[in-house]
């Protein structure tokens, strides 16, 4: 196995262009996968020195480097994402090391970041040798552990537009140590958007009117959540059952309703 730690994005994309390489960000997901033989790459590209960390303002939004850690996010003012970052499971060691770009690229259905990015209308900046593109978060998350990123691409940054909508975030876990079972990221503006994480293979977007959200929420979730995520922690029917509950709590939180 080859290991490279390029000093910039060009170096990263050059290393990825060669073929079957795995990108390591914070390492909290992919390194244990390698240890247990579930990922057997011929090359590892480490982003640690590629200059991809940090949060910056850009016009009317945020640019969040892919290597920005949960700890940095938690200290920021990025709506929803800062809240989600503070509640990441695994302790400060994971929050110090795990990155928003790594979590997005891993696309574990049972994780906080994908649904939050979709709720925020974030855009994912991907780079490959000789080119770059942006993909809306809603398209980026293609399924369980699947994204729109091609093997020769690297996620470099995530842009998040400012929003005047009020945020609400609720994460439901079985106990402290479990993956999230269902998360709900809500933004309440003129209309309400709540995005469910953990409930299905990819984030589920629910759009609601302010006046009727309580009446409509359950049926909308039922309509959209046709294939709930099922794993050893919780069966799909349980996720489907509590998804409207968690969504309602997130919306109520955004609206500061009890």
């Amino acid at each position: 196995m080859r290991y490279t730690r390029p000093a910039d994005v060009d170096g990263v994309t050059a290393a990825l262009a060669d073929g079957d390489a795995v990108v390591v960000g914070g390492g909290t997901m992919v390194v244990p996968e390698m240890t247990h033989g579930r990922v057997r790459p011929s090359a590892v590209v480490d982003l640690a020195k590629a200059g991809l960390a940090g949060i910056a303002r850009d016009g009317d939004g945020w640019v969040i480097g892919a290597m920005t850690t949960y700890t940095e996010l938690a200290r920021s003012n990025v709506p929803l994402l800062a809240t989600a970052a503070r509640g990441i499971t695994g302790g400060p060691q994971i929050r110090n090391r795990g990155t928003v770009g790594g979590s997005a690229s891993y696309a574990n259905p049972s994780s906080d970041v994908p649904a939050v990015l979709v709720a925020l209308g974030a855009r994912m900046r991907l780079a490959r040798r000789g080119g770059a593109r942006e993909v809306p978060a809603a398209e980026f998350f293609a399924g369980a552990f699947r994204t729109a990123r091609e093997p020769d691409e690297v996620l470099t940054a995530i842009t998040v537009p400012d929003t005047a909508a009020a945020p609400g975030y609720v994460k439901f876990k079985l106990v402290e140590g479990s993956w999230p079972i269902v998360t709900a990221a809500a933004l309440a503006g003129p209309t309400i958007r709540v995005v469910l994480g953990g409930a299905a293979a990819a984030p589920v977007v629910v759009e609601l009117e302010r006046a009727s959200w309580r009446a409509r929420l359950r049926s909308e979730v039922d309509r959209l959540l046709t294939e709930p995520w099922d794993d050893v922690l919780a069966p799909g029917h349980y996720r489907a059952r509590i998804a409207p509950v968690i969504a309602a709590r997130a919306v109520a939180g955004a609206l500061e309703e009890a």
């Binding site: 290991y3 390194v31 590892v44 060691q93």
Partner: peptide, 8 residues
């Protein structure tokens, strides 16, 4: 602090 099992 870092979990050193998750770092190369």
């Amino acid at each position: 602090t870092t979990k050193s099992c998750s770092v190369l």
